[in-house]
Amino acid sequence: MTRWLLLFILGVIAILMVSPLILTVFTSLKPTTELVNPPWAPPVNLTFEHYVRVWTEGGFSRYFFNTLVISTVDAVVMIVIASLAAYAMVFMEFRFKLLLQILFLIGLMIPVTAIVLPLFQIVRGFGLLNTHLGVILADLALAVSVFVFMFSSYFVGVPKALHEAARIDGATEFQIYRRVVMPIATPAVVTTALLEFLWSWNDLLLRLLLMTRDEMRTLSVGLLNFQGTMTRDVTGLSSGTVIMAIPVVLLFLFFQRHFVRGMTAGAVK
């Protein structure tokens, strides 16, 4: 009896949680004439005209492309640089190791929000304003410590004997990294890729500062701008929102287990 009551309450909560998303999808598919109906009324005559309009006239194809490039490069490069650094931290002996550990630890504490003003100046100093590269470098720097720790915690689990055996066989450190250690760390690779892609895809503040030219904008800035100029264009706004949400929602549904594990591990950021 109580089990059924619990299930009922949870069902209501689940519906409440997804309803804002469903209402947004409904609105994005409604012909303008149906906007007088309440938001929870499903569209009667489905139309994709708002998507087409936002995608072409609204410039969302451009924003989508920019976002996809930045997020993908972010994810791939992050895997490489974070795993290399973590490998050195776990398997190599060198001076100043403790200092580096503390340095990476500091990175977990820095709130991006607090340092955006000097960050803007540095990116400008390198002449990287309005470039993909500028945003990518900033993204990588601000999240790399999270993933160095994530990879380290996987590498620590690799038996030292395995590493030693490969060394005795004459393998270089890079060969051991590439052929022995990385294959074992596949879960960390997947988690890093997903999480970094997600953070990069969703960020607004950095992109708002570093991308001022329209053709360089990402979806987050594009949507903000669209909202500022087309305040009453409810269907356009909801289509834009759905366009921005669909890739990450799909990724989440396919890789839910990895996401859940990664989000708890990378939660500090």
Binding site: M17, V18, P20, N202, L204, T241, A245, F252
Partner: peptide, 18 residues
């Protein structure tokens, strides 16, 4: 899934929706 799904939605999209 229903409860965790909004976590992956961009704050910008969350802002627009709400």
């Amino acid at each position: 899934t229903c409860i965790v799904l909004p976590v992956v939605i961009s704050p910008m999209a969350v802002a627009t929706i709400w």
